[in-house]
Simulated scan of single mutants.
Amino acid sequence: MDATVIKAILFDLDNTLIETNRASGFAIQKTRELLKSSLALDDDTVSSICDKFKKKLLHEKFDPAAGRSIDEVRVGHWDESIKETVDGSTPSLAAECYYMWKNSRLELLCLSPEICNLLKQLRKRYKLLLLTNGNAQTQREKVEAVGCERFFDAVVVGGDYAEQKPFPSIFRLCFDLLQVEARDCIMVGDSLDTDIQGGFSAQVRATIWINSTGDEVPVGSVTPDYTISTVLDLEDILARLN
């Protein structure tokens, strides 16, 4: 590592600054209750429907040019998941499930007071940029729900561009927005495949992996420069880097 002074910090959003996985689990539970009451289903059948939805979400390929909004696509995920499991699905029930899931998730997402304070303090010393992958509408709804734009010099949503993390092109865009070089920046995120690999490929000063579960780095994966269990430990790493 050289002695380059850090000028900017790039942050991931989901499961780095906000607990998206926890909010998603809560939203699925609320939707389970809706399905159970609407169709009088047993727990196993409801679980099967929800598991199918989560699998469709995981493998989702959204094409804006197809003429359907992300909301319409995800209503379709619920409709298909119900139809693949039981008789009696209706478009209205699928829409109810989707908006229950979507709104419940957004309601639970938040920046903790501790993270708000961290970002306020960091912005006194560094340029801060939020770099998040995902569908543009979905990610901007999260950004608005948690009110985090005020903490950042720029917000970049991968879905607005041809290439998302880990492609170097979107990192170069971020560097240009902040008017810094790659060596001036660090990347902080929870995903080895997108945040850490992307930062490494873009040749940032250092990569910091948020590993809240204590997992080992998988064999063959990129190795982060630093690993912390929560973003609140970032100040310790910055002190070492500076």
Rank of each mutant, 00 (worst) to 15 (best):
V86D: 08
R125L: 14
T90Y: 03
L39F: 08
H59Q: 14
D79E: 15
S89P: 03
V75F: 01
L130A: 00
K54L: 12
L93G: 01
A65C: 03
E80C: 06
L109G: 05
E96T: 13
L128I: 03
R123G: 04
S89H: 07
K102E: 09
Q121I: 10
T85P: 09
S47K: 14
L130G: 00
Y126S: 09
C110E: 13
S112R: 08
C97G: 02
G76Q: 00
T90P: 08
L106Y: 00
S47R: 14
S112M: 09
I82Y: 12
I70K: 07
D87G: 03
L57P: 03
T85A: 06
I115N: 03
S89E: 08
L106T: 02
V86R: 11
F62K: 06
G88F: 08
W78F: 13
N133M: 10
V75Y: 00
E80H: 10
K120G: 07
K102F: 12
V73A: 04
V75G: 01
A94N: 11
S92D: 11
K54G: 04
Q121S: 13
D79R: 15
E80G: 06
E107M: 07
K55G: 04
F53V: 11
D43N: 12
L39T: 02
A95T: 12
I82D: 07
N117Y: 12
N117V: 13
A65K: 05
A40T: 12
D51N: 14
S81F: 02
R105T: 12
E107A: 13
S69Y: 03
A66L: 15
T45V: 15
R125N: 15
T45M: 14
L129I: 05
D43P: 07
V75P: 00
I70Q: 07
D87H: 06
A95M: 08
N103C: 08
R74S: 05
L128F: 07
E72V: 01
F62M: 07
S81Y: 03
S92N: 09
V73W: 04
L108S: 08
Q121T: 10
K124M: 11
I82R: 05
K61A: 09
W101R: 01
Y99S: 07
E84H: 09
R68D: 08
L111V: 06
N117D: 15
H59I: 13
K83I: 01
K120Y: 11
Q121E: 14
C110W: 02
L106G: 02
Y98L: 09
T132V: 00
H77A: 09
D71M: 01
Y98V: 11
L109S: 07
L39I: 02
S104P: 12
L58H: 12
D63N: 10
K124Q: 14
C110N: 14
G76Y: 00
L131C: 06
D63R: 06
L41S: 03
K102W: 11
L122F: 00
L130W: 01
L131G: 09
K83E: 04
R105L: 13
S104C: 13
L106M: 06
K102L: 13
L122H: 02
C97L: 05
S89K: 06
E84Y: 05
S81D: 01
N117P: 03
F53Y: 14
D63G: 01
C110I: 07
S69I: 00
